[in-house]
Write a protein that binds this DNA or RNA. Structure first.
Length: 436
RNA sequence: UCCCGAGUAGCUCAAUCGGCAGAGCGGGUGGCUGUUAACCACUAGGUUGUAGGUUCGAGUCCUACCUCGGGAGCCA
């Protein structure tokens, strides 16, 4: 294997720079078509796929025999001349001079025909090699990079939140419990409370990491382990929070449009839907959203949170993400600040993605008054002692502050136009999936 | 936790009213110098999820269980 290390490797994505030259490519056999005295080998190297043409008369008998016997996903090395050619997928093809099999693959489970999702998820470690999955995870990479760039350029500091937490942060969802020496610890469901502490220390902060929910949810929008980015800003109100969320999401979409045209084509995404995502986004009051539902025959009960079908009805009214604000305080978490103009309502906002993708952002202004927060903790029947550090933030220089959380996988699913979030994360963790 | 649906060849699926378990892909063999999920011919490949029941006869009908998928609730 030592012979195959090459530090100046040429990659398929840059093959146009080598038009007319003789180069060596390293990769895997994506597919082949052997037609008598002519062989078409599709080399995949992670950055793209190139068709390599081998005429029986142009290579030694031994080399042509290798093409005949090489199996799908065998690792290979091909030397040849690069030519622009309309007939070739990708626009360039290679005329083969030499071809070596680095490691002959056993019978590869993922054939070029159809497979079911369960089978593919069981072979997730191999499925990544497929064109579409490769494109999705490249777009995920762009989204994550764009998220970090957006905040870094705007003076935010990245503050990592802990994964082990001592108690339920919000007391709503079911948490994964783990032994922590002689006590219990729980896997985090949100870094937000810690970000509030960090915002008081650094001004503008965000965390980006995995989040865990032990809910027995089996829907296309749910994972038990997912990634979330949570910015938090001191001296910011709900309006500022919505401004931030809007600029943030628009920036992410723009970056994908700039960087991933090729991948968007592979996954057959309707790009015009993404091009429409420019500020300003519609901002509607909970009462307006309720009216939309009433007008569209929903069984929605005023005062409740919206169900999945309700979110779809609301988002379908717009061709951009829509921000719904000021939900009834009763259906929101204890740390949400109540609207001084209507104390029954919370200064909160959810952003619903277009095309029925549901909630991608949840956030709002936080309660900054010590006595009010204390009362809410008691009302929600939460252990007061666990929240002393959180109450300290109101004891020592409390300020208005706000933030939100954005779910990475739902954002990727929306931007890529996917049916299910399980394809948006390299190795999905679902209620019935812990392998591979 | 609740509701709905599905388990048949390595994979994707078919099998009429309960009547001989089949096809495509993938594997193997042979053929083909411009293929695009190549094509053509031949070939191997089955405890029909498990356990019971009804029947002359069960992939098909009944009961239970197992596994998986979709959805609800909850949420990002």
């Amino acid at each position: 294997m030592q012979n195959y290390i090459n530090r100046d490797k040429i990659y398929v994505e840059n093959i146009g720079e080598h038009d007319g030259k003789t180069v060596t490519l390293y990769g895997w056999l994506y597919n082949k078509r052997v037609k008598g005295k002519l062989a078409f080998l599709l080399l995949r190297d992670g950055t793209g796929i190139i068709q390599c043409v081998m005429g029986k008369n142009d290579v030694s008998e031994e080399v042509f025999e290798r093409a005949d016997k090489v199996t799908q996903e065998s690792s290979i090395m091909i030397t040849g001349t690069v030519h622009a050619d309309q007939r070739a997928p990708g626009g360039y093809e290679m005329h083969v001079q030499d071809f070596e099999i680095i490691s002959l693959a056993q019978e590869y489970p993922i054939t070029p025909k159809e497979h079911g999702t369960t089978f593919l998820m069981d072979h997730r470690h191999l499925w990544h090699r497929s064109k579409k999955q490769n494109a999705i995870l490249r777009i995920r990479h762009t989204i994550i990079k764009a998220i970090r760039d957006f905040f870094d350029k705007d003076g935010f500091t990245l503050i990592d939140a802990p994964v082990f937490t001592p108690a339920a942060c919000e007391g709503t969802t079911t948490l994964f419990e783990t032994d922590y020496f002689d006590t219990k610890a729980y896997l985090t469901q949100s870094g937000q409370l810690y970000m509030e502490a960090a915002a008081m220390a650094f001004g503008k902060v965000y965390c980006f990491g995995p989040t865990f929910r032990a809910e027995k949810s089996k829907t296309r929008r749910h994972l038990t382990e997912f990634w979330m980015v949570e910015p938090e800003v001191a001296f910011m109100d709900l309006e500022g929070d919505m401004d931030l969320a809007e600029a943030f999401v628009a920036y992410i979409v723009q970056r994908v449009l700039e960087s991933n045209q090729e991948q968007l084509k592979v996954i057959e995404r309707d790009v015009s839907k993404l091009e429409a995502v420019v500020p300003p986004f519609p901002r509607i009051h909970y009462d307006e959203a309720a009216k939309i539902l009433a007008d569209n025959g929903s069984e929605f009960v005023f005062g409740d949170d919206f169900g999945a079908a309700d979110e779809t009805i609301i988002s379908n009214q717009f061709d951009k993400p829509v921000m719904v604000h000021r939900y009834p305080a009763a259906v929101k978490a204890f740390y949400m600040k109540n609207d001084p103009e209507n104390p029954e309502r919370a200064l909160c906002v959810d952003m619903l993605a277009p095309e029925g993708y549901g909630e991608i952002i949840g956030g709002g202004q936080r309660e900054d008054d010590l006595e009010t927060l204390l009362r809410k903790i008691r009302e929600h029947d939460l252990p007061e002692s666990s929240f002393q550090w959180y109450l300290d933030l109101r004891r020592y220089g409390s300020v208005p502050h706000a933030g939100f959380g954005l779910g990475i996988e739902r954002t990727v699913a929306w931007i890529c136009g996917l049916h299910h979030v399980r394809e948006t994360i390299p190795f999905a963790r679902l209620m019935h999936r812990l392998y591979p």
